[in-house]
């Protein structure tokens, strides 16, 4: 890895990030979020300092009380003397591209605390409950030395499984009465859970919700019945101590010999994002004869999109050849 491409100001910024200066972290986050020309080099420069933080993803349907739970978790970790970074993602308007980022309203009691750093992101059209650059932003926060990183997903009710790639510990939050049953929790989400949290546990039907969740877990693949189902009342911090110790238990299991967390899933996701973006950018700009040939082949139905995409990515042979081979294979079989 090299930090080449960083200006002097960029290198100073990296130093300040590693010293833990919040303003520097914030600046870098903007570069990464907007994928500026400095983003990649900044990220490379801080990689070695990552792997320390406990990254906790919080997902679940709207109305489950995710922001309030995040607020309560901040309180617990602050009491234990840990510093807490929060990444909160809100949806962008599909029409205007704008967004109202209001998650931090529910974390207002910690706003003035220098041991808490909350950053809001708009999803900018990215699906999966996160912003596209969320994984890379976590790297920055991790390197800046924040002990705990809480990642709150959009919570629009769609399958928000992406958080599984970037958070080491995934909390799936539900609450009583969100649907007729637990329909609100889509099966896909349930599968990523390390801990299931039933929030608003002081409400009627809380026990029933917990029971149905446990029953659903039993139907899944073996081992999933070991996933703990915990009850909380985030507004009063009831059940938070148990949640925090369960997180600690799981975190301990995930630590390697050097006490660092294996970040490979996060890196793989970041790489996938980077490859996807680069491929798109390159392809849009690419005026070469090879690509033109592929486009012609697609237009005439000689090849299909999957085959063509593979042809573009498997750069060894000429795209034309690959396209032809793929088509041959398909028609031959």
């Amino acid at each position: 890895m090299t930090t080449a491409g960083l200006s002097e100001a960029g290198q100073r910024l990296v130093e300040k990030i590693l010293e833990g200066q919040p303003a520097a972290l914030s600046r870098a986050m903007t570069e990464v979020e907007n994928e500026t020309g400095h983003a990649a080099a900044l990220l490379a420069a801080v990689q070695k300092a990552t792997g320390r933080a406990v990254t906790i993803g919080i997902t679940g349907p709207p109305g489950a009380g995710k922001s309030t739970l995040v607020n309560a978790l901040i309180g617990e970790y602050r009491q234990a003397g840990k510093t807490v970074g929060v990444i909160a993602v809100d949806p962008s308007s599909p029409l205007s591209g704008g967004a109202i980022l209001g998650d931090r309203i529910r974390m207002a009691e910690h706003s003035h605390d220098p041991g808490v750093f909350v950053r809001s992101f708009a999803s900018r059209g990215h699906l999966g409950g996160l912003s596209r650059t969320a994984g890379r932003v976590i790297d920055l926060m991790d390197a800046a030395g924040w002990d705990i990183i809480l990642i709150e997903t959009v919570g629009a009710g769609q399958s928000e499984v992406e958080v599984a790639d970037i958070a080491a510990i995934k909390l799936v939050v539900s609450a009583p009465g969100l649907g007729d049953d637990i329909q609100a929790i889509k099966a896909g989400i349930l599968e990523i859970a390390d801990i299931l949290v039933v929030n608003k546990c002081d409400q009627p039907l809380a026990e029933q919700t917990k029971r149905s969740l446990k029953a659903m877990l039993k139907l899944k693949q073996s081992g999933s019945q070991d996933i703990p189902v915990l009850g909380t009342v985030a507004t009063t911090s009831e059940g938070l101590a148990e949640l925090v110790s369960e997180i600690a238990l799981q975190d301990e299991k995930q630590r390697r010999g050097d006490n660092l967390v294996d970040r490979k899933p996060r890196i793989r996701r970041n790489l996938a994002e980077a490859v996807g973006q680069l491929a798109k950018d390159r392809l849009r700009q690419n005026q070469s004869a090879d690509i033109d040939a592929l486009i012609v082949a697609l237009e005439s139905g000689e090849t299909d999109y999957l085959a063509a995409a593979e042809a573009v990515l498997d750069g060894g042979q000429t795209n034309r050849e690959i396209a032809a081979t793929r088509l041959e294979k398909k028609t031959g079989s």
Binding site: S92, S93, L95, S96, G97, G98, A99, I100, L101, G102, R104, I105, A108, S111, H112, S120, A122
Partner: peptide
Amino acid sequence: ALRDAGLEVVYTAPWQEIPT
């Protein structure tokens, strides 16, 4: 209105302290 014009708006409750 700002959101509808494509801006990203961080919104807070009232009564913020100045240092906050």
